[in-house]
Nucleic acid binder design. Structure first.
Lengths: 337, 337
DNA sequence: TTGAAAGCGCTACCAT
DNA sequence: ATGGTAGCGCTTTCAA
């Protein structure tokens, strides 16, 4: 179909012609620290401006690094993911990179396809926020001189940099909070995503509780979403021996859980029920929720990513752990009832 | 600093060498509908696999279209924006494009910088979700053969494609809903962003009300956010003659407004106060809010974008308007009190 | 300071 | 079906 690429992009050659200089001069004008006389420089800039010329970074990327960073992510609409993408794109841009977003599913095949795209576009680095890429493919990325940074993924593959929050700390701390509030029947709400992060929050919480001699009822009600939180609450409070303190491995789950607990079962928070979440999404701070939770320190995490990018030698097989920050609000009693 | 680009990307030449064929053969193996014998094809694929070769799309983009689409967006963490980015990246990918996200501020200078980036990377098209680019720059993009698609921007620049929801309809309909519910003192809550969309929702609502002989109190309390909605409620209910029906030009504003109205002023919704929003973000459907609102039909919008991309000739100066979909929930009484 | 020329990795064209 | 070659737009090296 009409392949008449009518007005094509303007090239350095066109600028050179119009300015009456060599195309080298044009190139030099646009590369920092090259030697051009003020006169030619002005002529070039003028011509470039008139023509609407912009340096072709694709062609530039043929010789050196492309300055492209790929973000592999799923569930972008989730508040925590949206935030991650936001801070990452922002900080990457600030350090002179441009971000390609690959919106993927979490299954291995989709993630693999995403990684291959990453290679196709000669990205300097790939940042994986979702799913777990097969080791062999990571190998390939590395062999191609690409950096691979895994966030909250836990698979500590050889050569890839791993970065994540301390889930164990959150699990332990959540237990402490609930017990101090005098909760006696503990529950844990999780999703069927079963990512390393979620599983770790769960197991640490459950084991820490077991160490204190208290048992935890674990409920898993679907994907990581508000609706699953609702569903979990319906199940949990539909039975006898309902919990009076729960740790939801995600804020979104916690919010749905709270809504059903209050509206369908008439519970008052934190009097009848204490809830702890994880992530500190914006909604957790809304007046209707005031959820006590753990904040993922996204800015420090993004800084770390940029840092890794700027110092590739540091990147090799490094694992950085960042402490989540407890955020006290009103869904947990400060002391015993 | 160590510029030792150790293991560089593997090129077609390397594959050719290993497979014992010409580099043309390699190229052909990876282009659809080229003629290669099954034997060479196998040899090439084997070598490519062993080496971890991936076609360089950057180099490919030197001759033909790059298949890159740039998304210029601000406020990415806002639920509605996050959704937009999500559906757009998803649909663009499905049609063989790759998305570059440029996270920008809404001021003209930032948006201009974003558009220039777009040009630098030879994007086939630029989709602007936030801010209003200067006409001259759009001109430049078009002159370079790039498509420019403006979403909910209203500036109908020559040659750019415009796409947006029918804000006027929402303004009119919101008024109808509130009056039918028997609301007598109407309010409109907006932000200081003053984008074309927001302004249109406001003016249509206010003028339609005036036509019915009722006056509207307009409150503008800051940026488009939950907090501004809260602030607006504090102002509005702090005065005598508080409204009993409000149209918030954005769901986020509506949610903050509702929380303060209920918790700080003891109002019951929809008995004492009816609220209408716009966007239909996920949170609007949460049990705590059940907000009656207008849905932005994001999927159809994204489809339209893709369609425009695939048929560039259609794109010229076209304006497509999409109807928002009223979503009935419980923040407005179905009839008079 | 400047221009010519090589080469980055690729695809398309042209012979074979 | 295959290999050689030109050329996409750029930066860099080399002479002048």
């Amino acid at each position: 179909m009409s392949d008449l690429k009518l007005p094509s992009f303007v090239s350095a050659q066109m600028v050179a012609d119009r300015a009456g200089v060599s195309r080298s001069a044009v190139s030099r004008t646009f590369t920092d620290g090259a030697s051009v006389s003020e006169a030619t420089r002005r002529k070039v800039l003028e011509a470039a401006d008139a023509l609407g010329y912009h340096v072709n970074h694709l062609a530039r990327g043929l010789r050196e690094r492309s300055n492209i960073v790929c973000l592999v992510v799923a569930d972008m609409t989730t508040p925590i993911r949206a935030r991650m993408v936001d801070v990452l794109t922002r900080k990457l841009q600030a350090s002179g990179k441009i971000t390609m977003v690959i919106n993927t599913e979490t299954d291995t095949e989709s993630v693999s396809a995403a990684l291959r795209q990453t290679l196709n576009y000669r990205a300097d680095a790939t940042v994986v926020l979702s799913g777990t890429p097969p080791a062999s493919l990571i190998e390939t990325c590395l062999a191609n001189g690409q950096q691979v940074i895994l966030i909250n993924r836990d698979e500590r593959l050889q050569g890839s940099s791993n970065l994540g929050v301390d889930n164990a700390m959150a699990g332990r701390e959540a237990l402490f909070l609930l017990r101090r509030a005098g909760c006696e029947r503990l529950g844990l709400i999780t999703s069927n995503a079963r990512t390393a992060s979620l599983v770790e929050r769960e197991t640490v919480f459950v084991e820490a509780a077991a160490a204190k001699g208290v048992q935890v009822v674990v409920t898993e009600a679907g994907p990581t979403s508000y609706e699953s939180g609702q569903e979990a609450a319906r199940r949990v409070f539909g039975r006898s021996e309902a919990p009076d303190g729960v740790f939801c491995v995600t804020d979104l789950l916690a919010l749905g859980f709270m809504d059903v607990a209050r509206q369908d079962f008439g519970l008052t928070i934190p009097d009848d029920l204490c809830v702890v979440g994880f992530d500190d999404i914006e909604q957790a701070g809304w007046a209707s929720y005031q959820l006590t939770t753990f904040r993922q320190p996204l800015n420090p995490m993004a800084d770390e990513v940029v840092d890794l990018l700027l110092q590739p030698q540091r990147a090799v097989s490094e694992r950085r752990m960042i402490e989540p920050i407890p955020v006290w609000r009103r869904s947990v009693r400060p002391g015993k009832r």
